[in-house]
């Protein structure tokens, strides 16, 4: 049974930015001709003097953001995940990560749930790229409430932060901004003792749905909202490895380099565990509706259930 949909996480970002703009006069926002899609347009309207649209120029976007950070501003730079991370990566590397500049990268249109626009606008590798930047905090919030907290945390954190948001309406995981949200701390959204699902972004909803379905069949599934991929909550991962029979990692990303890889590394080092991966295999997707793609590429509730069953088999 699918959960009710909340607003898209990009929309929650837009709303949060306006609020943060009021509290933090040093916050400035940059976009690359996608402010209507990333939702920075709301900030642009509220604070036109603190908003810079650099046009269709993502490398410049990141470079300018890093320069602004050196003057004490707190720049939020936004575009689609694929364009910003791929065209701005060298600038992120030297001007943001290596320099440890206080730049916040908030991307929209992460994953394949964007649907019809197809491969060129989809990002299936952005989390891996972000994780490859030393000291970069990497967050993939699950719903509107989690996004609100991620953006609040990003502005408080000193140093580079990456937050991935999505285009599609996100299944609601919380009824209000989770009070126990902290960078690097998983939120246990459901207790369970047989298997643990560690999910983030658009997969937390389906993970909870799967846990509910299996509860009716006597299987007890723990679900962690692992909104922060880096630094990873090692304690929560080890606890899951110790207390349950295995771990399913579920994410809207290529199977290599994202949350799955991070979890596997921690278990391999600290407490080897049986792990199944619900993720996009070694492929790009295509054009279709978001729901069709999530089903075709193995990112829906039945896929999480099948992975849990494989662990219990």
């Amino acid at each position: 049974m699918a959960r009710p949909l909340g607003m898209a996480t990009r929309q929650a970002y837009g709303k949060a930015l306006v609020e943060i703009g009021k509290l933090h006069p040093n916050v400035v926002v940059l976009d690359a001709d996608l402010s209507k899609s990333t939702m920075t347009k709301d900030f642009a309207k509220a604070y036109p003097d603190r908003f810079f649209n650099v046009g269709i120029a993502e490398a410049n976007l990141v470079g300018v953001a890093s320069g602004l950070a050196t003057t004490g501003k707190i720049p939020f730079a936004s575009s689609f995940a694929c364009f910003l991370m791929c065209k701005g990566f060298d600038q992120l590397r030297l001007g943001v990560a290596y320099a440890e500049n206080n730049v916040k990268i908030v991307v929209s249109h992460g994953g394949i749930s964007i649907g019809e626009d197809g491969v060129s606008q989809m990002s299936v590798e952005d989390v891996a790229l972000a994780c490859e930047l030393p000291k970069m905090v990497v967050m993939v919030p699950s719903d509107e409430h989690c996004t609100y907290q991620a953006i609040r945390a990003a502005v408080e954190h000193k140093g580079p932060v990456f937050v991935r948001t999505g285009r599609a309406k996100a299944p609601l995981v919380y009824d209000a901004p989770p009070a126990d949200f902290a960078i690097g701390k998983a939120i246990t959204v459901r207790e369970g003792k047989d298997v643990t699902v560690i999910a983030n972004g658009m997969l937390v909803g389906p993970a909870l749905d799967a846990a509910e379905s299996l509860a009716e069949q006597g299987v007890s599934v723990r679900v962690l909202d692992m909104h922060t991929v880096k630094p990873l909550d090692e304690e929560a991962v080890v606890k899951a490895a110790k207390e349950t029979k295995g771990i399913v990692v579920a994410e809207e990303h290529l199977v290599h380099g994202g949350l799955g890889s991070a979890v596997a590394q921690v278990t391999a080092r600290m407490h080897p565990a049986r792990i199944e991966f619900v993720a996009i295999q070694d492929t790009y997707a295509e054009s279709a509706t978001g729901e069709e793609l999530m089903a075709k590429y193995g990112l829906s509730e039945p896929d999480v259930i099948a992975a849990i069953r494989r662990i219990l088999a």
């Binding site: 626009d117 060129s120 606008q121 295509e286 054009s287 279709a288 075709k296």
Partner: peptide, 9 residues
């Protein structure tokens, strides 16, 4: 549409 050769881009 799903499985079409006419991709969005």
């Amino acid at each position: 549409k799903l499985n079409s050769r006419l991709q969005g881009h």
